[in-house]
């Protein structure tokens, strides 16, 4: 028997899973469409404009940077799309459209590409960009109420004067909780304050960043990511669990611990952070135990900032701080090797 061509010789294994970086990122994008739909429903089509601007800018900066440095293009791996979506989800619908463009530049060029691109950055690009954008606090902390016709245009700038008066939210639920006031209580400290019930906070009928408001939809996205085996349960469960336990044990304002805990986990960026940000591959540990420790760390810092910091939200900073500890967690928390007993490892350690 003669063969028509030379046989390929390579090291085993000779088969590989279909799932590559691109298909994983595609799954994350699909999961991100859940909160995007909710954002459009709650805050109108401007949410989509913001998101598309952010995604387009992220792809453009990634493409441009790699092209200028004569490196192979990486936009096909879709990670820039994920960064762009997450960046937009961390903005209020009122943010000017140049904000996500500046954010995308910081996320893609400074945080991701300067360190070598996908897999090399040590901070979550979208979160680092959000932290950077807080340089313009006035522009990214002007909150409007969902499901209220605010009169915002798709592209124009939004000012307090241009928005319908009844659309302006005087306080986010978290800002009230900072003072120990339940979101369901109308506070005299904020002009024109309205009550937000638990149904509102879980469903997403609250002011906030466009992608973070609906705990329910974010939990659905979590289930999707778990089923698709994109992420493991360790980080989200440890993160949300830690916040739940701490807020249950230490409710502010003498509130009922259980109610306080439910409001604490359903408001702010916790769900978005725990499902999409803290689970970012590059900036989270690889071992199950490492992931649990990391999740607990995120939860602890979140509650500490919410309770003792002067900023009402702690999710983004807690994740960024824990990002810096990932290498250390990976270095010191190793799986127990097969066939090696714990004691033997200590005794035999070099």
């Amino acid at each position: 028997m003669e063969l028509g061509r030379k046989l390929m010789v390579s090291s085993s294994p000779h088969i590989k899973t279909e799932d590559g970086t691109r298909s994983i990122m595609l799954d994350v994008i699909i999961a991100l469409v859940f909160p995007l739909i909710m954002a459009v429903y709650m805050f109108g089509w401007r949410s989509l404009t913001l998101t598309l601007t952010s995604v387009a800018a992220s792809i453009a900066f990634e493409w441009l940077y790699r092209r200028l440095l004569k490196k192979p293009s990486t936009i096909h791996d879709l990670s820039a799309v994920v960064t762009g979506m997450l960046l937009a989800f961390n903005l209020p619908v009122s943010a000017p459209l140049w904000i996500p463009v500046v954010g995308a530049f910081f996320a893609i060029v400074i945080v991701k590409q300067l360190y070598g691109g996908i897999g090399k950055n040590f901070m979550n690009p979208a979160l680092a960009a959000r932290a950077f954008l807080i340089s313009w606090p006035g522009l990214i902390s002007f909150w409007t109420r969902p499901l209220v016709n605010s009169g915002m245009t798709l592209f124009g700038n939004v000012t307090r004067e241009s928005v319908a008066v009844d659309a302006i939210a005087s306080a986010t639920p978290l800002a009230k909780m900072k003072l120990g006031i339940l979101p369901s209580v109308v506070s005299q400290q904020f002009d024109g304050d309205v009550a937000y019930t638990l149904q509102d906070t879980f469903f997403g009928n609250i002011p906030g960043c466009i992608g973070e408001v609906s705990a329910l939809v974010l939990l659905a996205a979590l289930v999707y990511l778990l089923i698709r085996k994109v992420i493991t349960y360790h980080i989200p469960v440890a993160y949300i669990g830690t916040v739940a336990v701490l807020t249950f044990l230490f409710p502010l304002g003498g509130n009922d611990p259980f109610i306080w805990m439910l409001y604490s986990i359903s408001t702010g960026g916790l769900m978005l952070g725990a499902v999409f940000m803290a689970t970012d591959y590059t900036t989270s540990p690889v071992t199950p135990l490492g992931r649990i420790v990391y999740g607990i760390g995120c939860g602890l810092i979140t509650v500490l900032i919410r309770y003792f910091g002067s900023y009402s939200e702690g999710v983004s900073y807690s994740i960024l701080i824990m990002n810096l500890l990932v290498w250390t967690l990976d270095k010191f928390i190793k799986p127990r090797r097969f066939g090696v007993k714990k004691e033997a490892k200590k005794a035999g350690g070099k």
Binding site: M8, S10, P13, H14, I15, K16, G20, T21, I24, P72, T74, D77, S79, G117, I118, G119, T232, Y281, T282, T283, S284, P285, V286, T287, P288, R291, P335
Partner: peptide, 19 residues
């Protein structure tokens, strides 16, 4: 080819290999 080795090889630190 059933082994798909031609894509750019980049570790994204997903930890699937550890799992």
């Amino acid at each position: 080819k059933e082994d798909k080795i031609d894509e750019a090889q980049t570790c994204i630190h997903c930890g699937k290999c550890v799992g």
